[in-house]
Design a protein around this nucleic acid. Structure first.
Lengths: 228, 228
DNA sequence: CGTACCATTGACGACGGTCAAAAAACGTGG
DNA sequence: CCACGTTTTTTGACCGTCGTCAATGGTACG
């Protein structure tokens, strides 16, 4: 098969435990790719790579959260996307990364040396095709991002909340790993509008906000209707 | 090298003349990939592939213009991008195309059968890596599209005009192959706003509009300043 | 020459941005 | 544990950009 199965739940490079503790889950699909990587911890707001850095590595997030973003001279910022546990990132590049990547909270990350990966890809065609599939996943993300931006503020926020809930495999409530500023720069809104929209959704009974970072889903139907 | 050179001007699959006339340009880089394709003409507004079609082919545009777009139930539409002569499209897909592709004006297109391409990719690693590079180019397009959408209406229009001029290798004036509706749905504006912005740019001396489809650049600096 | 279609222009309103201030959350050190 | 300062979030008032609705004008094609 030349095309990626690309089901919503699977993530490339199966779960990897390199910190000594044996994985409690059944060991499935241990990937040769992740054996050439090492685990590194990044503190809050630490840059993982810059937006013009040559792409020496590919990254897999073990725990925490990561944002990709582009900084502009005037201080404005565009957040390209959020990556959660088990997500692979750092593939959105040509000769240089399109965006920077930064740890949102403290993050543990497997760093895979790209030369090793590439020489593997040059020998093994299926590895090259998997890299293609991973890039295609990034393409889909960017694509969905464009579609998100054609919506209204409440629709964008609802859409993000539901997408995050799916990514986290949570159903009733989620803890937002990122501050309002990141959400605003991702949705292309201001923090004020994001905050107001959260309040409106709460007032409308769609969600509840016991803390600014915690979102309880009260009326999921309403959110899904907004999502469109 | 594993990464695409990705210079702004080069397009994958070197120029291809399959209609019998000998190419007047020097024959460089004749690509085995395009030998497994055939030329087809598409009339104005004809769909080339649908947004859920399985991706049987890859396409290279010989002449005319093509838009990729996604149609919604409520009649709204998102235009993903415009493709001009020598551009390759139809690679933005997983198991199915993310968007539909439609001829804007009459278009002549080389259709490359994907199974032949894929079996080639499975045998030849460099072909697989080139497919990756092409997908990465699409990723960059989607990326730039997101960045475009964070700008104001005049900035979006100016940005599109300059980008089109670059794609066409024109310097002083361009003929827009697409109607206002397509521009609006690409920039996520209304046709009224697009029209007003054109008028404003003309009033401000940045451009001249001898006809609705023709744009003469009067003050390129002003446009580039808007582009940011 | 007439008939669609497409583009332009105007008046008005709404959504979201800006500016400003208050309130809450967080971290640090006493 | 509490006091303090900093950062983040919320809320309010106001304004500007762009969308909506409507009408006119222009262009292409039969």
């Amino acid at each position: 098969m030349w095309h990626s199965a690309s089901s919503s739940r699977d993530r490339e490079f199966a779960a990897c435990e390199t910190d000594g503790r044996a994985s409690s889950a059944a060991v499935v699909d241990r990937d040769p790719l992740e054996c050439i990587g090492s685990v590194v911890a990044f503190p809050r707001n630490r840059e993982i790579y810059g937006q013009n850095d040559p792409p020496f590595h590919v990254y897999k997030l073990i725990s925490g959260a990561v944002r990709t973003c582009k900084h502009f001279a005037d201080g404005r910022r565009q957040v390209g996307g959020f990556y959660l546990a088990n997500d692979v990132f750092g593939l959105e590049m040509g000769a240089a990364h399109l965006m920077a990547a930064e740890a949102i909270g403290n993050a543990r990350i497997v760093i895979i040396r790209r030369p090793a990966l590439m020489s593997l890809a040059e020998r093994e065609t299926d590895v090259a095709l998997r890299l293609w599939a991973l890039t295609m996943r990034e393409l889909r993300r960017a694509h969905d991002h464009v579609l998100l931006l054609m919506k209204s503020a409440p629709e964008r926020v609802a859409s993000l909340l539901l997408t995050l809930a799916e990514q986290m495999d949570k159903d009733g409530a989620i803890d937002l790993p990122m501050p309002r500023r990141d959400i605003a720069d991702y949705l292309e809104l201001t923090i004020e509008t994001v905050s107001r929209t959260f309040s409106d959704l709460q007032a409308g009974g769609a969600i509840e906000l016991p803390a600014s970072h915690r979102v309880v889903f009260r009326d999921r139907r309403a959110l899904e209707k907004l999502r469109g």
